[in-house]
């Protein structure tokens, strides 16, 4: 019949390892959650402060702090082995690498592209789209 008997080494493992992982005090969890909420409010708040070119960097900075909080406390990286931090940071670097190369490329060929709205998007805009994210209407481009 089906394989149900646990192999000897997994049985041995079950005894020498605690059944529950590391426990984080509720106080820390709640303060982390509070910090995340506060940062969310700040994210919305800075939307009203225009620092020009740095807008995006401010937003990304706040997001990085939030992600770091989640990884450190909610994902227990603070109490895990340092190797896990290394893996986490390493994987993040791969994401950065991918995005950076893609952005570098698109920024290089951007000026070879046509300006204005693409035809299908324009169709939608011309028809009816008062609150559409793309606010530049054909009339504006032609002017």
């Amino acid at each position: 019949m089906s394989h149900t008997d646990p192999s000897p080494h997994s049985a041995a493992h079950a005894t020498d390892q605690p059944l529950v992982g590391h426990l984080v005090p509720v106080r820390i969890l709640i303060s982390t959650a509070a910090a995340l909420l506060a940062l969310t409010i700040i994210t919305v708040a800075v939307r009203y402060i225009d620092v020009g070119e740095f807008n995006v960097w401010v937003a990304i900075g706040i997001a990085v702090v939030k992600a770091a909080l989640v990884a450190t406390f909610f994902m227990h990286l603070k109490w895990d082995r340092p190797f896990n931090v290394l893996v986490f940071v390493g994987c993040t670097l791969f994401v950065v690498l991918m995005i950076a190369f893609c952005v570098l490329d698109t920024s290089q060929y951007r000026d070879t592209q046509f300006t204005g709205n693409p035809p299908m998007a324009q169709e939608t805009l011309d028809a009816n789209a008062p609150g559409a994210p793309i606010t530049q209407k054909k009339a504006d481009i032609n002017r």
Binding site: M98, F101, C102, D105, T106, Y109, N117, P118, P119, M120, A121, I134
Partner: peptide
């Protein structure tokens, strides 16, 4: 849903698709 990530007629970038796919 035709949201315009990769489809140029919706403002998307087909080269970006190739970046993602070949990554």
């Amino acid at each position: 849903l035709n949201i315009g990530i990769f489809n140029p007629s919706m403002g998307g970038d087909p080269v970006l698709y190739q970046h993602f796919f070949w990554f």
